[in-house]
C-alpha cells in the first residue's frame, strides 16, 4: 500500500474533508438552492394564477364595456328621438305664431283698406256734388233768357216775407 502512495491517513482525512464539505454544502448551499427552486416554482404558479385572474378580469371588463356601449347606443337613440320631437314642436309653434301674426297683419290691412275706402267714398260724393253744382250752373245760365229772369225776380220779390 505504501508503495502506491496511498496514505491511509490522508485518504481518511480526505474522506472526512469530503463529508464535512458535503455536510456544509448540504446545509448552506443545497438547502437554500432547493428552497430557491421551490420559490421559483411557487412564483411560477403565482404568475400563472394571476395571469389567469387578469384574463378573467379583462374578459369581465370587456363584457361590461360592451354592455355600456349598448346602453349608450340606446340613450343616444332616445335623445335623438326627443330632440326630433322638440324640433317639431318648436317648428309648429313658430308656424302658428307666424300664422297669428299674419292674421293680425291681415286684420290691420283690412282696417286700413276700409278706412281708405270710406275716405274714397266721401271724396266721391263730394266730387259728385261739385260736378252737379257745376252742371246746374252751366245749364241754368245757358237756359234762362231775359224773360225767364224777369219772371224769377218777380216771383222772388212777391214771395219775400217782410224783412226789416
Amino acid at each position: 500500500m505504501s508503495g502506491l502512495g496511498i496514505d491511509i491517513k490522508l485518504i481518511i482525512a480526505q474522506i472526512i474533508n469530503f463529508f464535512v464539505f458535503f455536510l456544509i454544502f448540504r446545509r448552506y448551499l443545497a438547502k437554500p438552492f432547493a428552497k430557491y427552486l421551490d420559490e421559483e416554482e411557487r412564483r411560477e404558479q403565482l404568475k400563472e394564477k394571476s395571469e389567469k385572474i387578469l384574463k378573467e378580469e379583462e374578459d369581465r371588463i370587456k363584457k361590461e364595456i360592451e354592455k355600456h356601449k349598448k346602453k349608450l347606443e340606446i340613450d343616444y337613440q332616445k335623445a335623438l328621438e326627443k330632440m326630433k320631437t322638440q324640433v317639431k314642436d318648436q317648428r309648429e309653434k313658430l308656424i302658428s305664431q307666424a300664422q297669428k301674426e299674419a292674421e293680425e297683419i291681415i286684420i290691420k290691412a283690412k282696417e286700413i283698406e276700409r278706412r281708405e275706402r270710406d275716405q274714397l267714398e266721401k271724396e266721391t260724393v263730394r266730387r259728385a256734388v261739385e260736378l252737379a253744382s257745376m252742371i246746374l250752373t252751366k245749364a241754368l245760365a245757358d237756359f234762362l233768357d231775359d224773360k225767364d229772369q224777369k219772371n224769377i225776380n218777380r216771383r222772388i220779390i212777391s214771395h219775400l216775407k217782410s224783412i226789416n
Binding site: R117, D118, E121, K122, T124, V125, V129
Partner: peptide
C-alpha cells in the same frame, strides 16, 4: 253700402 248711405243723406 256706405256710398248709398251717403247718397241718401245727400238727397
Amino acid at each position: 253700402k256706405k256710398l248709398d248711405h251717403l247718397i241718401e243723406k245727400a238727397k
